[in-house]
């Protein structure tokens, strides 16, 4: 589903190769925060390879048009470490934004999605006002809103950026449970965890673990 073939991107990747197959989960550990942010840009096509090939769903992202790239991005859900919320939109508007933008939803469909959103939020014990702007929220709550937003899109690939960082044990347990359920909900769904904190491995049981070192992905046992 995701394939890197000898990808070179200046200062980030040096002939890096790896692949993730359908239905699997994978952890990529980076040495630093900037490396992690750059990697996230690579996975969303914001940074293109200088040489080599990156494929999502068997499509080379360097050769697709801008519109096709945006269509691919719709199949990839991102949970940024800071939530990635737009500061001038209310929390619920942020959560609904990609769905409302990409899909022409009927009133009934919007109602159903809102119900689903409330359901996930209840499971996460998210008790803050979602009709307020996100500025006042702590980072982990913004991240939880980002998590709900990504899940509502029902993506084929979901990328979690430092998703468990700074969470208390109680909420961490709930997030892990939701992530595991979400992974198995759709056949072939890929879950990719990117973090610069090795402690993630204590909580997430992935099918494969890679270390990004000297611009290459090294698989760990």
């Amino acid at each position: 589903m995701i394939t890197f073939e000898c990808v070179y991107i200046k200062d980030i990747l040096e002939c890096a190769s790896f692949s993730i197959s359908e239905g699997s989960s994978c952890v990529i550990l980076t040495a630093s925060e900037p490396e992690k942010i750059s990697l996230l840009k690579v996975f969303t096509g914001l940074l293109m390879p200088d040489s080599g090939r990156i494929s999502f769903f068997n499509k080379d992202i360097s050769s697709v048009s801008h519109t096709e790239l945006n269509q691919l991005r719709q199949k990839i859900g991102i949970v940024p470490a800071d939530g990635g919320l737009v500061s001038n939109l209310k929390v619920w508007e942020n959560i609904m934004l990609p769905l409302m933008y990409h899909r022409n939803l009927s009133q009934q469909a919007i109602h159903d999605v809102e119900e689903k959103m409330k359901n996930i939020m209840n499971k996460l014990d998210y008790d803050d006002e979602i009709t307020r702007l996100p500025g006042h929220l702590p980072i982990y709550k913004k991240r939880l809103a980002g998590l709900v937003r990504a899940m509502l899109m029902e993506p084929d690939i979901i990328i979690y950026n430092s998703v468990l960082e700074g969470l208390g044990s109680d909420i961490k347990e709930k997030v892990i449970k939701i992530i595991n359920t979400f992974h198995t909900e759709k056949k072939g769904r890929v879950s990719l965890f990117i973090s610069s904190d090795e402690r993630l491995l204590n909580d997430i049981k992935a099918d494969s673990i890679y270390m990004l070192k000297y611009g290459r992905f090294n698989e760990r046992d």
């Binding site: 914001l46 945006n70 919320l85 990609p98």
Partner: peptide, 25 residues
């Protein structure tokens, strides 16, 4: 002010990551 703050806070980047064209939106 709004666009520059959004750019500095990487909000525009996050919008693009969701497949939303910042020029359109």
């Amino acid at each position: 002010a709004e666009l520059s703050a959004m750019n500095v806070n990487r909000e525009i980047e996050n919008i693009e990551m969701m497949g939303i064209d910042a020029e359109k939106y």
